[in-house]
Structures are given as C-alpha cells and as structure tokens.
C-alpha cells in the first residue's frame, strides 16, 4: 500500500500562488476528503499527487510529495509508473473514443499487465479482467450485453462508473477523485458513493468535494483548505464535532462557502 506524505508543497500558476506550504500525511485505506471553498486549491492539491499538474505549462511546484518515501517530483521519476500507482477519477467521465470493453481494457493493455502477458489465453484473460473491474465499479449487470457499443452511448452516471472501472483496471494503490459526483444525478451519485465505501478496504481514496454533506457521509479523514492554506486536517468525527480553527467553524456552519 503506497503511503503519501506531502512536505512543504508550494504550487503556483505563473506568478499566482495557489498552494502555500502544505504539509500533510495521508492515512492509508481511508476515504480522505479535501474540502474548502471554490478556488482554494483543492483540485490543484489532488492533481499534484500524480503529477497531472505537469500538463499545465505555467505551473511551478516546489517541496516534495513522497510515495513510499520516494519523491514523485524527482526528475528521475517515471510519470507513467507513478500514474499507474496513483489513479485519477476526473470530474466528468470523458469516455475514451472506443467501446465499453476497450475503455476498461485500455489501461491493462498499455501497461501490459501480468494477467495478459503471462496467461496463454490472452483474449479470455482480458475478458475476465474487464468483467472483474466492471463488477468492482458496480456497472457489470447494466452493460454485460453491450460491451462492444461505444462508451459514449452510456448515461453519464454509467460513464462515471465506467471511468471508475477504468481507474481500477490499472490496479492503482491510491485513487484520486475530483468531485466525482458533481456531474451526476442523485441516484448515480449514490451508486458511486457506495462503490467508494466498498473500495476503501483495499485502496486509499482521496476525494475532492465541495459538498459538505458528502464529506460527512463518506470521509474518514478531512483536509480543509482555505485560500491555498492548509487550515486543519484530522479524522472526520473530530473535524465536524470539535473544529479548532475559526475558519473551519465558519465553513462548517455555512458562513463561508
């Protein structure tokens, strides 16, 4: 299980600082919710953990994020390996332009995962792999008869669970989720939340959300950001019942949002 430690992380876009001196240790096998008002750097913090921030040209990052003791911002770091270990579930699903089956098989294929390369019955192994992850994402029963259809034909709720299956298929150790239910209807959102609760047995899940109630429902641990500063982080029960900081109190009570 990969363990994440963030040390003196500073991120800025051009000359605009977004995160100031973040120090944080992520507890393993829990659902960690990053909360805070919009524009406080939640998504930036999340994307810093698998270097998706690199895609932004103006971004500069200092400090370090240790994954099992290895700094992921070390120039020698292989970004594709990192991203395989730290999976990412985006805000909107964006199915890859291929079939439902291929969406799930894409990750294992590019990484040449053991099951596929070792077992002689490649096709059969791939099929059971895809079924496994679709079941894990709670989507199998709805799509098992139309695996060859384009993924774009699924409803957005189904697409988001497909995206979840896609992340799971690369066998990550940590899952980063960026407001994964914000584009979904309540029923689909509930389905995704249920999957998260099941998945935390085996994964560390770090979730950005702007819905306080969702954080209350799901999270074991809360990280509260405000204007790029890490204000408070502690187990969810303590966070909501006995917050220390005035800003936290104001945020929980709805005075700032």
């Amino acid at each position: 299980m990969a363990h994440i430690q963030i040390q003196q992380l500073r991120v800025s876009y051009g000359s605009l600082p977004v995160l100031n001196d973040i120090n944080l240790e992520i507890p393993d096998r829990q659902i960690v919710a990053i909360i805070g008002p919009s524009g406080c750097g939640k998504t930036t913090l999340l994307k810093s953990m698998n270097r998706l921030l690199d895609l932004n040209e103006d971004v500069s990052v200092t400090g370090s994020i240790l994954l099992d003791g290895v700094n992921i911002y070390d120039p020698a770091m292989d970004v594709t390996c990192l991203r395989k270990r730290v999976g990412f579930l985006p805000q909107r699903p964006y199915p890859l332009p291929m079939s439902i089956f291929e969406n799930v098989a894409f990750g294992p294929r590019i990484h040449g995962l053991s099951v596929l390369s070792a077992g002689g019955g490649g096709k059969q192994a791939e099929k059971s792999l895809v079924e496994h992850y679709l079941r894990l994402a709670g989507l199998w029963d709805e799509v098992k008869d139309r695996l060859d259809e384009p993924a774009a034909k699924l409803s957005i709720g189904q697409q988001q669970r497909l995206a979840l299956a896609r992340v799971l298929s690369i066998e990550p150790e940590v899952i980063l989720a960026d407001e994964p239910t914000s584009a979904l209807d309540p029923v689909s959102a509930k389905l995704v939340e249920t999957q998260f609760k099941l998945l935390k047995e085996n994964y560390t899940i770090i979730l950005v959300t702007h819905i306080l109630r969702q954080a209350r429902r799901l999270a074991d641990y809360i990280v509260f950001l405000y204007m790029g500063d890490l204000i408070e982080h502690k187990p969810a029960a303590v966070f909501f019942s006995a917050p220390d900081d005035e800003k936290t109190k104001a945020y929980i009570s709805g005075e700032i949002s």
Binding site: N50, L52, L55, T80, C81, R83, K84, G87, F88, P90, Q91, R92, Y94, L96, P97, M98, F106, G107, I110, H111, A163, R166, V167, I170
Partner: peptide, 23 residues
C-alpha cells in the same frame, strides 16, 4: 479534442504518444 480527454488517458499512465494514437 477536449483536454480533459487527454488527461483521462494520461492519468491512466498512457504516454503522450499512446494518448495521441489511441485517443
């Protein structure tokens, strides 16, 4: 082609070329 789509492929650990070719 929307950037978040590229991000999806890259986030799965695809290289840039794999992202270009398959997505």
């Amino acid at each position: 082609v929307p950037d978040p789509l590229r991000e999806c492929a890259l986030a799965l650990g695809a290289t840039r070329w794999e992202t270009v070719k398959y997505v």
